[in-house]
Simulated scan of single mutants.
Amino acid sequence: MPAGSPTLAGRYGETAQRHTRNRWLLIGMGVFIAVVMIMWAIWGSGLGSKASQLQFTDTANNPIDAHHITVSFSVDAPAHTAVDCAVEAQNINFTVVGYDVIHLKPTAETHQVITKSLITYEPAVEGSLDKCWLP
């Protein structure tokens, strides 16, 4: 019997039908893995979530005296969404000498400009917005 005969192929499972089934099984598994990876990437990026629409920017800071500084910043968030923001003041050595968390209540406005006065325990030379997040 030659090596490529249909009798040997049938005996040891090397039929054209089995090759076709295996090929479709591999294609199906590849498509499933691709769909799972795409869904995971979309979920992980937060696409469409309110957090992905949150933007914030420092606008100004003004040292007032040895124990006070004002920090101004803007926040863009979806309407009717509460936002928390942390502001900090730093001294000449970049040590944080004042820190506060501001809780912005939900409003119909999507853009807000906030000015916060911080109390410091040392003279501050810089005030900045640390970060904002959805509570």
Results as ranks from 00 to 15, higher is better:
residue 78 P to Y: 03
residue 88 E to V: 15
residue 23 R to M: 14
residue 132 C to M: 06
residue 34 A to V: 05
residue 33 I to N: 13
residue 125 V to N: 06
residue 90 Q to N: 04
residue 43 W to P: 02
residue 77 A to H: 09
residue 110 T to W: 03
residue 62 N to W: 07
residue 102 I to C: 02
residue 78 P to A: 14
residue 18 R to K: 09
residue 68 H to R: 12
residue 14 E to K: 07
residue 32 F to N: 14
residue 45 S to F: 08
residue 110 T to M: 09
residue 112 Q to E: 09
residue 20 T to A: 15
residue 58 D to Y: 11
residue 129 L to V: 09
residue 31 V to W: 01
residue 131 K to A: 13
residue 57 T to H: 12
residue 40 W to A: 14
residue 94 F to W: 14
residue 68 H to Q: 10
residue 69 I to M: 01
residue 67 H to A: 13
residue 7 T to P: 01
residue 72 S to G: 09
residue 28 G to F: 00
residue 124 A to S: 08
residue 50 K to H: 10
residue 134 L to E: 03
residue 118 L to G: 05
residue 81 T to V: 11
residue 132 C to E: 04
residue 68 H to M: 10
residue 61 N to T: 07
residue 12 Y to R: 05
residue 65 D to L: 05
residue 32 F to T: 15
residue 54 L to M: 06
residue 28 G to A: 06
residue 86 A to T: 15
residue 61 N to H: 13
residue 95 T to I: 07
residue 106 P to R: 00
residue 114 I to Y: 00
residue 46 G to K: 04
residue 98 G to P: 04
residue 91 N to W: 07
residue 114 I to H: 00
residue 28 G to D: 03
residue 62 N to P: 11
residue 58 D to K: 14
residue 13 G to E: 04
residue 119 I to D: 13
residue 45 S to Y: 09
residue 110 T to E: 09
residue 102 I to N: 01
residue 7 T to S: 10
residue 88 E to W: 12
residue 40 W to G: 12
residue 38 I to D: 04
residue 104 L to Y: 00
residue 14 E to L: 10
residue 127 G to C: 02
residue 91 N to C: 06
residue 74 S to I: 13
residue 12 Y to G: 04
residue 98 G to L: 01
residue 59 T to Q: 08
residue 4 G to D: 12
residue 54 L to W: 03
residue 59 T to P: 06
residue 43 W to N: 09
residue 46 G to A: 05
residue 11 R to M: 02
residue 49 S to Q: 07
residue 12 Y to S: 03
residue 99 Y to R: 08
residue 35 V to F: 01
residue 34 A to F: 00
residue 107 T to S: 05
residue 60 A to I: 04
residue 54 L to S: 07
residue 64 I to M: 00
residue 135 P to R: 01
residue 23 R to E: 15
residue 99 Y to H: 13
residue 49 S to M: 12
residue 5 S to F: 07
residue 20 T to D: 15
residue 70 T to D: 09
residue 38 I to C: 05
residue 113 V to H: 10
residue 56 F to S: 12
residue 30 G to D: 04
